[in-house]
């Protein structure tokens, strides 16, 4: 393990002296792979040590949370929990000393996972309907939520990047406003009967619907979908497609093709219909 830490202290301390040779990375390296899986190795070793020592150490009458061994693991676990919560503070506190949030995240992930072993082995597998087991179950729940977090961190960024399509949040909001203005203008010649659903769609908060709708992608009371349904007649717009930020939004923003000429038809060649819906 000495080699694991040597690079951490030796090399980096040197850089302080020269100031000209900063620690630089030439390639992107994710938090899971950080320093060639340093924290995965440390945390794996820790788990192994606990499992082996648990088997070798004879605690009378049997392993449980109240034995000296159980207390040792319990203290270690409690300390770890406190340290794990410190990430929330650490990531918001910019200080000028040596630290890297990526290293912290990496350690947080792997040491957090090792808590499953530390916590469970601390119990001596004495689980039952009591407050101790409740605490253990809640801890496991938190760890599982962390696992979900890792999956999200690993898979969503690509989709985020693709969906964003080089637009910034401000530009997206601006695009929605522009569509609203265009729709408003385009609805001018319509009869009051036809105008009503358009106005209703315009009045709707583009981010309404609550968390259920956001997570499921279903908007049963979407006024825009209703307006499309009412006005399109023959053309049945499929709500799912209409809700996507597709390439169409950029097209509309740049107004480089027919999609822009809202007066003729509000249709985009790519997504089939108005893509202004969220």
């Amino acid at each position: 393990m000495a080699s694991l830490f040597s690079s951490l202290f030796g090399a980096r301390r040197r850089s302080k002296a020269t100031q000209t040779e900063r620690v630089r990375e030439r390639r992107h390296e994710g938090f899971l792979r950080y320093a060639n899986f340093r924290w995965a190795k440390i945390s794996g070793g820790l788990c192994l040590l606990i499992i082996v020592s648990y088997a070798l150490i004879d605690v009378t009458p049997r392993h449980n949370g109240g034995s000296w061994y159980g207390y040792t693991l319990g203290t270690l676990g409690a300390g770890l929990i406190l340290w794990l919560t410190a990430l929330g503070y650490r990531k918001r506190k910019m200080t000028s000393d040596y630290w890297s949030l990526k290293a912290w995240t990496s350690a947080h992930v792997y040491l957090g996972l090792s808590l499953m072993v530390i916590g469970t082995w601390h119990t001596g597998f004495q689980l039952g309907w009591n407050v101790h087991t409740l605490a253990w179950a809640l801890m496991m729940l938190v760890i599982l939520s962390g696992l979900y977090g890792i999956i999200v961190y690993a898979t969503l960024p690509q989709a985020l990047s693709n969906n964003r399509d080089e637009m910034t949040q401000m530009q997206m909001l601006e695009a929605i406003r522009a569509f609203d203005r265009q729709l408003h203008a385009a609805a001018q010649p319509l009869t009051p009967q036809d105008t009503a659903p358009v106005l209703k769609a315009l009045d709707e908060d583009p981010f309404a619907g609550g968390i259920g709708a956001r997570l499921s992608g279903r908007y049963p009371r979407c006024a825009t979908a209703a307006a499309l349904h009412a006005l399109a007649g023959r053309e049945r717009a499929t709500p799912r497609r209409a809700r996507r930020w597709s390439g169409c939004s950029r097209r509309n923003r740049r107004r480089s093709d027919g999609c822009a000429s809202i007066s003729g038809s509000a249709r985009c060649s790519k997504s089939g219909f108005m893509c202004m819906c969220r």
């Binding site: 980096r12 302080k16 992107h28 938090f31 910019m94 040596y98 961190y153």
Partner: peptide
């Protein structure tokens, strides 16, 4: 001494600062 805050504060390692010749090295 530890370098740019934007890189150090990236939780996932997405941000790096490089020169073009370092980034486009043949090793890549």
């Amino acid at each position: 001494a530890d370098g740019p805050a934007c890189v150090r504060a990236c939780p996932t390692g997405a941000a790096i600062r490089v020169s073009p010749e370092e980034f486009l090295s043949i090793a890549r």
